[in-house]
Amino acid sequence: MSDQTLNPETMPEQPERATLEGKNKFLGFWFFLGGETVLFASLFGTYLALRNSTNDGPGSEELFGLELVFVMTMLLLTSSLTSVYAMYHMKNNSFGKMQLWLGVTVLLGLGFLGCELFEFYHYIHGEGFTLRSSAFGSAFYTLVGFHGGHVTFGLLWIIALMVRNAKRGLNLYNAPKFYIASLYWHFIDVVWVFIFTVVYLMGVI
């Protein structure tokens, strides 16, 4: 695999699937997301089973405020669009613009994470609501925390890719890497859609 084959003048239509390695990564990562679906479903199921088990502690209606959740939703939803923009520029082989949009995605993701940490901090110190408060507390922190962990990992992943490839630009070896990182980021948003619906909106209704 020489430089020539990896750095063509113009990117093929689907740079993420132009090599066998790319095709494998693409397919394998989609399958992994299929497995993740079951992982989060198990967490959602556990949460639904335990959401009324407040053990005389605070319940969802007293705890959740919708304003912060709305801001978080907008941040994450917008970051999903910006990562689509990044992939758009990848297909047009404009590396600089891709990096720029990925950078915006990371900033929005950091904003989301900041809000989530603030929320958790408020619950723990303001309301005295922790993992050990009740089965509801355990289920809440585990479900939302797993999502937050995915966000953190996704941010580290995208930052690592951006830094690593900043100097050498786009080629057919790293295009699949960028592409699956963006798939991961979209999946994080998919999960969040269900979290704000099932946990927060249905929690205060």
């Binding site: 997301l33 079951v38 479903a41 198990s42 199921g45 089973a49």
Partner: peptide, 12 residues
């Protein structure tokens, strides 16, 4: 995956 997920959530 969505099918297994649905069964899991429904059951739990």
């Amino acid at each position: 995956g969505a099918f297994v997920a649905f069964m899991t959530v429904l059951t739990l």
